[in-house]
Design a protein around this nucleic acid. Structure first.
Lengths: 149, 149
DNA sequence: CTGCTTGCAAAGGCTTTGCAGAACA
DNA sequence: TGTTCTGCAAAGCCTTTGCAAGCAG
């Protein structure tokens, strides 16, 4: 165990393993490391940032595995993909329903829980279709920013 | 003027030029062609689809120009970028406020106007920040679809 | 005419893939 | 021990960029 292990709740490794198993995910070493980073606290991370943080923990996981694992976790609803920009996919470690602020200027993504989306007013879905999720992204920017070029 | 000009309201070319000028966009031939495609009816098109439709009109516009122009139009708020998937950016020719259904299975994007987003409940924004836009994407899929792998 | 635009093709960034070796049950 | 996962590197896709030639006002 690396010396910096105490920087996150490394002691909850067992909990993380349980969580993975509960979702039908085989808890390999890399997956546990990635999950440890994701669940150390609620946050939004890009694939690259996940890689950086795993590396910062003194572990080595390949980029391919990062992508595969994040994709697997999303598919299993362990985390949620938040798409704010064509080339900026974040993985949100909080699966509780909430929405997001996206700061266009800085690229920062923050949580937003006080917004109401009236799902009751949804039109009737085509037969056999179900709602998989609702994403609300409030894009904000500096007021003084130039809107055009 | 190509013979297929009547397939869309080619007669509104002047209106389109006016619209571009009103937004401070120099109405070049390519831009008018692209705008003609976009505004022929309310729709959501990817860059590639715009290129296809322009080509279908018998015109030739380079891919680079398609990208540059769509980006310019968005920046000038003539159209709106809708990001539903990391590699699926649509350009919405309807700028009236509305939201979207995204069919995960088929990739189809459709309009949705009956949803209420209670913007009044937005938390206070940091000073100097303004809301640039609110995107609501309701992701739907076939009920029988397998959720995991 | 002068500057902005276009087009081509190459470069760029992020993500996926194929296959051999390693790890897990 | 068999299957699944990992890592590397190459390939892939979409988008952006640089530069010379062309169009708009």
């Amino acid at each position: 165990m690396p010396g910096i292990a105490t920087m996150t709740q490394a002691e909850s490794v067992e909990k993380i393993i349980g969580r993975l198993r509960m979702c039908g995910i085989k808890p390999t070493q890399q997956r546990v490391q990635i999950a440890t980073v994701l669940f150390s606290r609620p946050q939004h991370l890009s694939a690259d940032q996940v890689l950086e943080q795993v590396t910062a923990l003194g572990e080595r996981v390949s980029k391919a595995t990062i992508y595969n694992t994040l994709s697997l976790f999303s598919r299993k609803h362990l985390i949620r993909e938040v798409i704010v920009d064509p080339s900026k996919v974040f993985y949100d470690s909080t699966t509780l329903p909430h929405h997001h602020f996206y700061n266009i200027d800085t690229g920062a993504l923050t949580d937003l829980e006080a917004i109401d989306v009236d799902l009751a007013s949804l039109p009737v879905l085509p037969p056999g279709m179900i709602v998989d999720g609702v994403d609300v992204i409030v894009r904000v920017r500096r007021a003084s920013e130039h809107a055009g070029d």
